[in-house]
């Protein structure tokens, strides 16, 4: 069995869990395992029915009052009980902040470790080889796992596509799990910046870099974003200059995104930016410098002045 973790907050799905389902279905195709989903919950949860609409064997709701709010202790106890019961071959998760918080602990409880933040895997003669990005994105490493399962594997956001998760019909099974008293007490989560933007859910992003030259010029990019129904984002220098707020920043110190379409205007493509957007579906780069590294990553490039290209793009889009 491949056991997939379904992450949610108060019953609202974290969509990267669908990518994890897609990953698990892929791995199951290679190993011949079945797939089951695991949802920790404080009470009965409607989300279970939604997950039951995927092509998996069953949805396990691990229920205990203490699982209403995430704690690493509570989730680890609940998950460990389900793993002992189901004895999965692989445990697959999306590499979210929450998963980073508890997955290594869970693995350690089984005398294992996590193979974390994988960007892909391949099947080489029956041996699964996982690829991780190391040295801040400068290198990739192919990794195999020794010993017996369960193997704990997490995938980077965008490594698999949520819409590739195959639909089907699964049974829902509720298990009352034992959870010890957590050694930590959570308070209510809160947002610091008002109107904080979650670019990780954006389908289309127009991102600007130094090439935009001045704060006034940002409206050029905003008009394009409006025409595309896109969100506006930026590389670090733009946010450091406070031309756009920090919650618009893409990259190692900002958000990591994987939209269907990413348009980089006047962005050279420093590694710190690339790590935040490299998994985007289609990447467009418009830059005066033909040597800019962003062109290595782009599907389509225009070498030229963005202030000439963008208005024409808007006209073409509006032609319908």
């Amino acid at each position: 069995m491949i056991l997939v973790f379904i992450e949610h907050k108060d019953g609202v799905l974290n969509k990267t869990s669908l990518e994890a389902i897609a990953a698990a279905q892929n791995i199951a195709g290679d190993t011949g395992d079945s797939v089951a989903a695991m949802i920790p919950a404080g009470s009965d949860i409607g989300l279970a029915q939604e997950i039951a609409g995927y092509d998996i064997e069953k949805v396990i709701v691990a229920k205990n009052d203490k699982l209403g709010t995430y704690t690493p202790d509570g989730y680890t106890d609940a998950f460990a009980e389900i793993i002992r019961k189901e004895n999965p071959n692989y445990v697959v998760m999306a590499h979210t902040y929450q998963v980073r918080d508890f997955c290594p602990k869970l693995a350690a409880r089984f005398g294992k470790e996590m193979v974390g933040d994988c960007i892909r895997y391949s099947n080489e003669g029956g041996q699964l080889v996982f690829t991780r990005r190391i040295f801040l994105g400068k290198l990739d490493a192919d990794v195999t796992i020794k010993g017996e399962g369960p193997y704990f594997v997490t995938f980077q956001s965008g490594a698999f596509r949520a819409d590739n998760a195959a639909a089907g019909s699964a049974a829902v099974e509720t298990v009352d799990v034992e959870v010890g008293d957590p050694r930590m007490v959570p308070e209510e989560p809160f947002q610091e910046a008002k109107a904080s933007v979650d670019l990780t859910k954006s389908e289309v992003i127009v991102a600007i870099g130094r090439g935009i030259k001045s704060e006034e010029n940002i409206k050029v990019a905003e008009e394009l974003a409006e025409a595309l129904g896109a969100d506006i984002a930026a590389s670090r220098p733009i946010c450091d200059s406070e031309w756009l707020p920090i919650d618009r920043q893409i990259g190692s110190s900002g958000q990591t995104v994987a939209p269907k379409l990413y348009i980089a205007l006047g962005i050279s493509g420093a590694i710190q930016h690339i790590v935040g957007m490299k998994n985007s579906g289609t990447i467009v780069a418009i830059n005066k410098d033909s040597e800019a590294p962003i062109f290595d990553l782009a599907d389509y490039g225009i070498v030229g002045d963005l202030f000439e290209a963008v208005p024409t793009m808007i006209e073409e889009i509006q032609k319908g």
């Binding site: 294992k112 290198l139 490493a141 195999t144 010993g147 782009a298």
Partner: peptide
């Protein structure tokens, strides 16, 4: 149960 690095390389340019 360790993970073993088999190979390290420059990220592939797939595009």
């Amino acid at each position: 149960s360790g993970q073993v690095v088999q190979k390290v390389y420059m990220p592939l340019k797939t595009k």
